[in-house]
Amino acid sequence: MGESIAVEDHCEHHWQYNKPAHASASVRICAFCRTIDGQELMRTLDKYAHEQIAKLKQEPAPMARIQILELPTISLGDDAYETPFAVIVDQCSSVPDVNGVLNVSWERFAKNVGARALMVTPDTVEIPANEVPVNPGFEQFREQVQQEIAKAQADMMNSLKRGRP
């Protein structure tokens, strides 16, 4: 241990940038004595902290809505029928890119549930068959549920900002 201190005291630093595979920033390290440039490290950490705080302050993206659209029934013969369906993901902030390539996870999901088709869009798609008739007293209940959801989301964001689960 004494030898490494002596080397560090007499080292003419040869600075190199080192970026670990999992890191988003690099740090200056002497190639000879392995001394870390403390000022550079603090600037990097400060920048990273500001980026993380900015992410927390951003409004959360609205949750995508998943709907099922039944397609015309198909006769398989011998009194067997199949009702194919399409998965509609609307109000989605992550949509196909310019080449039309869908998010792989949505494609996998649609395939796993047996959907014949998949539609992902940021727009709202209303499917009349999916609408549920609402009795007149239900609107008050609906508003109460929405208020509770908004309160839970606000509590969650506050907890994240404070760094507590």
Rank of each mutant, 00 (worst) to 15 (best):
P84Y: 07
L56M: 10
Y17C: 02
E148L: 13
S93A: 11
E12C: 13
Q16M: 09
A150F: 00
H14C: 03
N135C: 11
A86W: 02
Y17E: 14
E148T: 04
S75T: 09
R43N: 14
E12L: 13
N99Q: 07
E143Y: 10
W106P: 01
T73G: 07
P60M: 03
G114F: 01
Q140R: 15
A150K: 13
D123V: 04
K19Q: 15
V113K: 10
Y17S: 06
A49C: 05
F85V: 01
E40V: 01
Q67M: 12
N112L: 13
P62H: 00
F32D: 07
I53C: 02
L71G: 05
A115F: 08
I36N: 05
H50C: 11
N18Q: 10
I66T: 08
E139G: 11
Y48S: 11
H50L: 11
N99L: 07
N135E: 14
W106F: 15
F32Y: 09
I29N: 03
D46K: 01
F138N: 02
E107V: 12
V98H: 02
T35P: 06
D37G: 01
Q52E: 09
I127C: 06
L76M: 14
C11Q: 07
A150C: 11
A115Y: 03
G137L: 04
H50T: 04
E131R: 15
V132L: 11
Q52I: 00
H10A: 12
E40L: 06
T35Q: 08
Q147L: 14
L69M: 11
V89L: 14
H10P: 04
K111E: 12
W15V: 06
P122T: 03
P62E: 05
T121A: 01
A25G: 03
I74S: 06
G114H: 02
C30D: 06
P128T: 00
D90E: 10
E131K: 14
G137N: 11
K19Y: 07
V120R: 03
E126L: 13
G137C: 00
R65F: 06
T73V: 13
S105M: 14
I149F: 03
H22A: 08
R116N: 13
